[in-house]
Amino acid sequence: MATPPISSLVSQRLLGKVAFVTGGASGIGEGIVRLFHRHGAKVCFVDVQDELGYRLLESLGGDKDPNIFYSHCDVTVEDDLRRAVDLTVTRFGTLDIMVNNAGISGTPSSDIRNVDISEFEKVFDINVKAVFMGMKYAASVMIPRKQGSIISLGSVGSVIGGIGPHHYVGSKHAVVGLTRSVAAELGQHGIRVNCVSPYAVPTNLAVAHLPEDERTEDVFTGFREFAKKNANLQGVELTVEDVANAVLFLASEDARYISGDNLLVDGGFTRVNHSLRVFR
C-alpha cells in the first residue's frame, strides 16, 4: 500500500472538537480561528470588533456552516464572557479547547514616571484578568468531563524585560504565572493548560500605538525589517500562521501530555545573546 501524503496524515486534527477563541476577529486570533475551522473544529470566536468578526464569519461560510459562529464579547466584562461560553456550550454541547488570545500592547512609554495608571490597569484587565476569567469558565465546563485544553497567548515579553512597556511585559509574565498555577490545579482533572509566546509578528497589535490611518504598508515593511534585523533565526519571517500552528499543536492530541508549558515561538530570540558578537 502506498504511503499517504503527509498533508492527509495531519488533516482534521481537531475533528469534532469544540473551541472558543477570544480576540478572534483579526491578527493572530483570526489565524487561529481559520486554522481550527480547517482542522474540523466547531469554533465560537468573540471580539469587540464586530465588523471584522462578521466579515471573518462570512468568509468561513456564515449561516451556511453550522460549525462556526461569532459573538460580540468584551472579555473584561465577566458576564459577557460567561454568557459567550454558555452560548458555545448550548450551541455545540460542550467545550474542549479555550484559547485566551485577546490582548493589547498598551501605549509605549520609556519613562516610568510618565505611565498613566489607568493605562496600566486597562492592559492588565485585558491581558491578565480576562485570561483568568477565560480559564475559570473553561474549567467549569471541562472539570466534569475530566478533559480539555486551555491555551493562552503570551509573548517573548513573558520571559524577558526591555522589549515593551512595563504594563505589557508585566502582564505577559503574569499570563505565564497563571498558566503554571492553573495547570497545577487542573492536572488532577485531566485538563492541560499551556501558553504560546511568539516573537514579533506583523499585525495591527504590533503598531496599535499608531492611529489607524498611519498603519501603512511602509510602516509594516519597516516593522518587518526591524524584526528581521534583531531576530536570532535568519531567513525565516515569523507569521500569524506559525503562531496558529503552535496553538493547534497544543490543542491537539499530539500534545496530550504537555501541560504547564510556555511554548516560545521565537527562533531562539529569548535564549541567546549576541551582544558579545561571538557568532555575528
Score class of each variant (00 low, 15 high):
Ala2Asn: 14
Ile6Asn: 08
Ser8Lys: 12
Val10Ala: 15
Leu14Glu: 04
Val18Arg: 07
Thr22Glu: 01
Thr22Asp: 01
Ala25His: 10
Ser26Gly: 07
Ser26Ala: 10
Arg34Tyr: 02
Leu35Ile: 07
His37Ile: 15
Ala41Cys: 12
Val43Ser: 03
Cys44Ile: 12
Phe45Ser: 03
Val46Trp: 07
Glu51Lys: 15
Arg55His: 12
Arg55Pro: 04
Glu58Met: 13
Gly61Cys: 03
Lys64Val: 11
Lys64Asp: 14
Asp65Pro: 07
Cys73Arg: 03
Asp74Met: 09
Val75Lys: 04
Glu78Pro: 04
Glu78Thr: 09
Asp80Leu: 08
Leu81Met: 05
Leu81Gln: 01
Arg83Phe: 10
Ala84Leu: 02
Leu87Tyr: 10
Val89Asn: 02
Thr90Pro: 11
Gly93Trp: 05
Asn101Val: 01
Gly103Glu: 02
Gly103Met: 05
Ile104His: 04
Gly106Pro: 01
Ser109Asp: 13
Ser110Val: 14
Ser110Ile: 14
Asp111Ile: 10
Asp116Ser: 06
Ser118Phe: 15
Phe120Arg: 08
Phe120Cys: 06
Phe120Lys: 03
Val123Pro: 00
Asn127Asp: 05
Gly134Ser: 09
Met135Asn: 14
Ala139Val: 05
Val141Tyr: 08
Met142Lys: 09
Ile143Trp: 09
Ile143Ser: 07
Arg145Cys: 02
Arg145Thr: 04
Gln147Asp: 14
Gly148Leu: 04
Ser152Ala: 08
Ser152Glu: 05
Leu153Gly: 00
Ser158Gln: 06
Gly161Ala: 09
Ile163Ser: 05
Tyr168Arg: 04
Tyr168Trp: 08
Val169Ser: 05
Ala174His: 00
Gly177Leu: 04
Arg180Tyr: 07
Arg180Gly: 09
Ala183Ile: 14
Ala183Phe: 11
Ala184Arg: 12
Ala184Ser: 13
Glu185Thr: 14
Leu186Asp: 01
Asn194Gly: 07
Asn194Trp: 10
Val201Asn: 00
Val201Ala: 09
Thr203Ser: 00
Leu205His: 10
Ala206Thr: 05
Leu210Asp: 01
Pro211Ser: 05
Glu212Val: 10
Thr216Leu: 09
Glu217Phe: 11
Val219Asn: 06
Thr221Ile: 12
Phe223Tyr: 06
Glu225Met: 15
Lys228Leu: 10
Lys229Met: 11
Ala231Lys: 01
Asn232Ile: 15
Glu237Tyr: 12
Thr239Lys: 08
Val243Gly: 01
Val247Pro: 01
Val247Met: 06
Leu248Pro: 02
Tyr257His: 15
Ser259Asp: 00
Ser259Leu: 01
Gly260Asp: 00
Leu264Gly: 03
Asp266Phe: 07
Gly267Asp: 11
Gly268Met: 07
Thr270Phe: 08
Arg271Thr: 12
Val272Thr: 11
Asn273Leu: 14
His274Tyr: 10
Ser275Thr: 10
Leu276Phe: 15
Arg277Pro: 07
Phe279Pro: 09
Phe279Val: 14
Arg280Ala: 13
